[in-house]
Design a protein around this nucleic acid. Structure first.
Length: 268
DNA sequence: ATGGCATATCCTATATGA
């Protein structure tokens, strides 16, 4: 089973790009971020026509997350990240799909920093840690996938110099990321490609795509039950090179679900 | 310190992103 995460940066204006990618790569499950569309403006019918059922949490103008599936209806578990009843931003969606708990998340960017937006980012990250702690050893296979807005290390960016003061590289952001991993989550792409330079985002400025000057900020984390199933991981870079592309490319994992801890445990 | 570009909407101006 192939599960992907893709920050589409506006699902209505990106619908053709999205459908081209789905048709060519055929992910079984796709987590989308930055829909930038109200709940009622989500193109559910167009996606159904391409073979995908969808669950989505929209919001006018900004944010917005969705889980698409061509392997059965995603069963909603929650559509908010717990811990702050005043949080009305559409950044988290969790569902059960084909026996896997899939959490689709869009972590706040945090710029400019320091400032209230950076504080909000760290607060959101702390809430994610608290919730993830309940999932890492829950006994079910769980995948956290999305735009984490964190460059984990200097090996995850083409050149950190001009980004040193950016929220994505701050020690606090990286410490929060590392604390999450330390709960027992596996960073799928880094696990299988420990030394490669791999990017998932190239900004629209200064010909960064043409120069392959990118960042790795879209991640897929596997809990302890799911980690044994990890077979392959990568980035569909070609998507970023298409006309009218999002500034992100899809990142994905291929899972052998016969190798989850739960499956192993079921055997005599 | 700013801006480069792209998305959105109360759209020829502004907020947001990373």
């Amino acid at each position: 089973m192939k599960i992907a995460t893709y920050n589409v940066n506006g699902i209505r204006g990106r619908l053709d790009n999205l459908r081209d990618w789905l048709a060519r790569e055929q992910p079984d499950v796709a987590c989308l971020q930055e829909l930038k569309a109200a709940q009622s403006a989500f193109p559910a019918q167009a996606l159904a026509d391409t073979g995908y059922e969808a669950l989505w949490q929209g919001q006018p103008s900004w944010n917005g997350v969705a889980i698409l599936s061509r392997v059965g209806t995603p069963v909603e578990i929650r559509r908010t990240l717990p811990g702050d009843a005043t949080d009305s931003q559409a950044r988290y969606l969790e569902a059960a799909v084909a026996g896997v708990v899939v959490a689709c998340l869009y972590l706040p960017n945090g710029n400019p920093q320091p400032g209230p937006k950076f504080a909000w980012k760290l607060d959101w990250f702390a809430r994610l840690q608290a919730h993830a702690a309940t999932l890492v050893d829950c006994g079910h296979p769980v995948l956290l996938a999305g735009d984490f807005n964190v460059v984990p290390t200097d090996a995850d960016i083409y050149d950190p110099r001009s980004w040193r003061r950016d929220a994505l590289l701050q020690p606090e952001s990286r410490a929060a990321w590392q604390a999450l991993l330390d709960q027992g989550w596996t960073d799928a792409i880094r696990q299988l490609h420990p030394h490669e330079r791999i990017w998932t985002f190239w900004d629209y400025f200064r010909q960064h795509w043409q120069r392959d000057a990118g960042l790795r900020i879209d991640h897929l984390l596997l809990n302890r039950a799911l980690a044994p199933a990890l077979a392959e991981a990568g980035v569909d870079r070609w998507v970023r090179g298409e006309p009218h592309a999002s500034d992100h490319a899809p990142a994905w994992v291929r899972l052998d679900l016969l190798r989850t801890a739960a499956s192993q445990g079921e055997r005599p």
